[in-house]
Design a protein around this nucleic acid. Structure first.
Length: 477
RNA sequence: GGCGCCGUAGCCAAGUGGUAAGGCGGAGGUCUGCAAAACCUCUAUUCGGCAGUUCGAAUCUGCCCGGCGCCUCCA
C-alpha cells in the first residue's frame, strides 16, 4: 500500500515519491486578497488541507508554503476606488482569510509569504532571466519572458495540442510583446500604480511584478534557504491555474534552475452553483462568513466537500450541505458514545472493526485521495460499532482501541462536529430542568415532563434518554 | 473554433471489464410512557441514448443527445 496521486503533467495517477523523504514540500497557490475568498476558493484549500493531513497521517514531515497575492490588477483597481494604498486595502482581507481558515479547521501552512514582501527576490529572478537571455525589456519598458526560448513550454497544459482562439489574448497593452504568448514578468509602473503604492525600483526599471512571478520567486526562496533545493514535491491549485499561471511558473523557474520546479502538479476542480462555476465574476458566490452567520458547523462543510472527489466538479446547495451535516453528526454521535463507553479505560486494543476501518480508509486515500470512498468506510464502521455497542459486544478495552482509530481517521478529515463550548451557567440550568423532568416522569406526570422537554427544545437543547439517565446536547446553533 | 471533463436511485455520490459502495431523504419494524439517539428490513434487474467489441460492459470503441470548464492575472 502506498500513496498514488494524479499528476497533471503526466495525466496519470503515479506513485508518490518525494525528493527527500520523510520531508515533503508543498506549495499551494493561496488567495488573492482583493476581497473575501469564496467557498469555491475554499474547496481547493480544503482539499489541500486533506492532502496535508493525510501526508502527516502517513508519517511524512510536511512543509507547506501558501502565498498571499497582495498586488494585482484587481487590488490596484479596488484600492484606487477607495483611495487607499494596496496594503491598506488588502490587510483586512488577509486577516479575514486567516479567520475563515481557522473557522474551517484548516491546518495553517508553515509560511505565508506575500508578494509585496518578496519584491527583492522577484527582482533577482527577473534579472537572472534577463542575464540568461530568456527575458527581454520591451518598448513599453516592461520585461517579458520569451516563451520560445524555453524548451518544453506548454507541457503542463498541453499547449501543443491547442489552437488559440482568434483574438483571445490580444490586448492593447500587450502590443510590445515580441510573441503573443510571451508573458509579463515585470510591468512598467503607471501613474495609477504609483498612486496606490504598487511600484518598486529595479535595475531594469521601476514597476511591479507580473502575476506569475511571485510564486516562482517565493517558492524557490523558501526551498533554497531552508533545504538547499530548487524542486517542490507537490504544487497544487485549482484547475484554472494550469494555464497560464502554472505553465508560466514552470518556465520562469526552470529557465533559471535547470531543475523541475515541482515533481507533482495537483489541480482541484471547481465548485459550481446551479451548474455554473462559483465565481465573483458571475456573482453566484457564497463566502465562509455567510455560512458562519447561518450557524453552519464547519464539519458539515468539510464533510460535504470530501464526499466528492477533488478532481470532479460538484454543485453546492443548501440541501446537500444539510445532508452532509447530518452525516457528520452521526459520526460525532458514535464518537461521543464510544467516549462514554470507554470511560477512564486507558490503552486498549483495536478490534477487527478498527483494523478494517484503518485499512479501508488507507486504501481509499492512497488511490489519489479518494475521500468519498474513505468516508464510506467510516460510515460502515459507524454502523458496525453501533451494532456492537447495542449488543454489548465490545469490552472497554476494545472500545478504547477502536475509538483511538476512529479519532485518528476522523482527524484526517476534520469532520467531528464541534461540541458547544462548555457554558457552566447553561449546564446548571439544563441539569436542573432535567432533574425536574425526571421527578415528573417518576411520578407518571408525562404532560409536565413533556412540557419541560419542549421548553428545553425551544432553547435549542435536545434530550436523549438513556439507561444512565438523560443526555443533552445543543442543536444546530 | 481548439483542448479537456462530466451525465449512476427522489437528492448527493463511489465504482473504469466480472455482474451496482456510502450519505441524505422515504416506508415499515425493534427500543421508549411518548420522543430522541441507535439498530434491523425495504427503497437502481440498472448506470443519458443507439450501435459495436467481448464468454461477460456502468466500465472498452464509434456516433448522437445533454451539461460544464480552460484558451480572459478566475481556486
Amino acid at each position: 500500500m502506498a500513496l498514488r496521486l494524479y499528476n497533471t503533467i503526466t495525466r496519470r495517477i503515479e506513485p508518490f515519491v518525494p525528493l527527500a523523504p520523510p520531508r515533503v514540500t508543498i506549495y499551494t497557490c493561496g488567495p488573492t486578497v482583493w476581497t473575501y475568498a469564496h467557498l469555491g476558493n475554499f474547496r481547493t484549500f480544503l482539499n489541500q488541507d486533506l492532502l496535508r493531513r493525510y501526508l502527516e497521517y502517513l508519517g511524512y514531515d510536511v512543509f507547506q508554503i501558501m502565498n498571499l497575492t497582495d498586488v494585482d490588477d484587481r487590488i490596484i483597481a479596488e484600492a484606487r476606488k477607495a483611495g487607499k494604498t494596496i496594503s491598506e486595502h488588502t490587510q483586512p482581507f488577509a486577516e479575514a482569510f486567516f479567520e475563515d481558515r481557522d473557522y474551517l479547521g484548516m491546518q495553517p501552512a508553515h509560511v505565508y509569504p506575500r508578494a509585496t514582501g518578496a519584491v527583492e527576490s522577484m527582482v533577482r529572478l527577473v534579472q537572472d532571466l534577463l542575464d540568461r537571455g530568456v527575458a527581454y525589456r520591451a518598448e513599453d519598458q516592461s520585461v517579458y519572458f520569451a516563451v520560445e526560448k524555453f524548451e518544453g513550454y506548454g507541457r503542463l497544459s498541453q499547449l501543443d495540442k491547442r489552437e488559440l482562439k482568434v483574438g483571445a489574448r490580444v490586448e492593447s497593452d500587450e502590443y510590445s510583446k515580441e510573441n503573443l504568448r510571451d508573458f509579463a514578468l515585470w510591468k512598467a509602473s503607471t501613474p495609477a500604480d504609483e498612486a496606490v503604492g504598487a511600484a518598486w525600483d529595479a535595475p531594469f526599471g521601476r514597476g511591479r511584478p507580473g502575476w506569475h512571478l511571485e510564486c516562482s520567486a517565493m517558492a524557490l526562496e523558501e526551498l533554497r534557504s531552508r533545504f538547499g533545493i530548487a524542486t517542490l514535491d507537490i504544487h497544487a491549485g485549482g484547475v484554472d491555474l494550469i494555464f497560464p499561471h502554472h505553465e508560466n511558473e514552470i518556465a520562469q523557474s526552470e529557465a533559471v534552475t535547470g531543475q523541475p520546479f515541482s515533481r507533482l502538479w495537483m489541480h482541484g476542480e471547481f465548485l459550481t452553483v446551479e451548474g455554473t462555476k462559483m465565481s465573483k465574476r458571475y456573482g453566484n458566490f457564497l463566502t465562509v462568513r455567510d455560512l458562519r452567520e447561518e450557524g453552519v458547523d464547519p464539519a458539515a462543510v468539510r464533510m460535504l466537500f470530501f464526499q466528492t472527489h477533488y478532481r470532479k466538479q460538484f454543485n453546492f446547495s443548501d440541501a446537500s450541505l444539510a445532508a452532509a451535516g447530518k452525516g457528520a453528526e452521526r459520526i460525532g454521535e458514535l464518537h461521543q458514545r464510544l467516549l462514554a463507553t470507554v470511560g477512564g479505560t486507558l490503552g486498549g486494543e483495536p478490534g477487527e472493526a478498527g483494523a478494517l476501518l484503518e485499512r479501508d480508509v488507507g486504501r481509499a486515500l492512497d488511490e489519489d485521495l479518494n475521500a468519498p470512498n474513505a468516508l464510506a468506510a467510516v460510515s460502515n464502521f459507524v454502523t458496525t460499532a453501533n451494532r456492537a455497542l447495542d449488543g454489548g459486544e465490545w469490552s472497554p478495552a476494545e472500545a478504547a482501541g477502536n475509538l483511538q482509530i476512529l479519532g485518528r481517521v476522523t482527524e484526517v478529515f476534520g469532520i467531528l462536529p464541534r461540541r458547544p463550548a462548555e457554558d457552566p451557567e447553561l449546564a446548571r440550568w439544563v441539569e436542573g430542568k432535567i432533574a425536574e423532568r425526571q421527578k415528573a416522569r417518576s411520578a407518571g406526570d408525562f404532560s409536565s415532563s413533556d412540557a419541560i422537554r419542549d421548553e428545553l427544545a425551544a432553547a435549542g437543547i435536545v434530550l436523549e434518554d438513556t439507561p444512565q439517565g438523560a443526555r443533552w446536547k445543543q442543536r444546530g446553533s
